[in-house]
Amino acid sequence: MNGLRWLREHLVLVLGLLVLAYTFVPIAVVVLMSFNAPASRNVYAFDAFTLDNWANPCADPGMCDALTRSVQIGLLATLVATVLGTLAAFALVRHDFAGRSATNLLVFLPMAAPEIVLGSSLLALFVATGFSGRLGFWTIFVAHVMFCLSFVVVAVRARLAGMDDHLEQAAMDLYATPLQTFWRVTFPLVFPGILGAALLSFSLSFDDFIITNLNAGTTTTFPMYVWGVAQRGVPMQVNVVGTVMFLVSVAIVVVGELGNRRRLAARA
């Protein structure tokens, strides 16, 4: 009877944990399948254990090409979006100007519009300006910067708005020049926000399919590669990439959390 009472008291927590467990089911399958030696091209079951997929991740060179391209586009788009977005966030929080709410609206809309509409608008522009034959790396890059920008602005703006300016005023009182104040005080304080925004940008860019697929021409990114092989038999190496992505992002979160704890502990 004790068990039943415990369950009644913790019902919500147990249900919540069940939902959480459900979100990990496909991840577990991805990890499992990364060790699978499939008996045929059409894989529906775990046939035999192997380390081959991990030993030869590039068995299909097409996959690694696509992966490399996704990383390149991701890094480049993240760099540009983070710089432009951070500048804009500073302007929005620290400066006053006409057309502020219009600007906020403009930043908000790309995040709210369905991807298919964003993607088809850009393609319509590229077609109208005669770029339809030159779709590829650079059109994907342009698109990715566009949708990452808004997320960067929002993330950095939140960090800046949550910061009071006492430390900066103190630096100025101690005769720091505006430039010194910025690089020694403001920037280090905002940096975690910028870093978070950059990580978010990279993962948005790396994982985007709908907008990319419309504007890629014959260039293939990793999500597009997966889309292609989904029709003709998925190599198990795709699951190796999926597993690595999962592990890397968990590692980043854990390192970030540990850093936070250490900072908080140092402050206390």
Binding site: G16, L20, T23, F24, V25, P26, I27, V29, V30, M33, V43, Y44, S203, F206, D207, F209, F222, P223, V226, W227, A230, V234, V238, N239, V241, G242, T243, M245, F246, V248, S249, V250, V253, E257
Partner: peptide
């Protein structure tokens, strides 16, 4: 920890996740 766990599965590629459902 639970908040991190909410987001963690979604850092694996959208398409790989969906293919995983296809297997399931």
């Amino acid at each position: 920890l639970m908040l991190v766990l909410v987001v963690a599965p979604f850092f694996t590629s959208f398409l790989v996740r969906t293919l995983s459902w296809k297997l399931i």
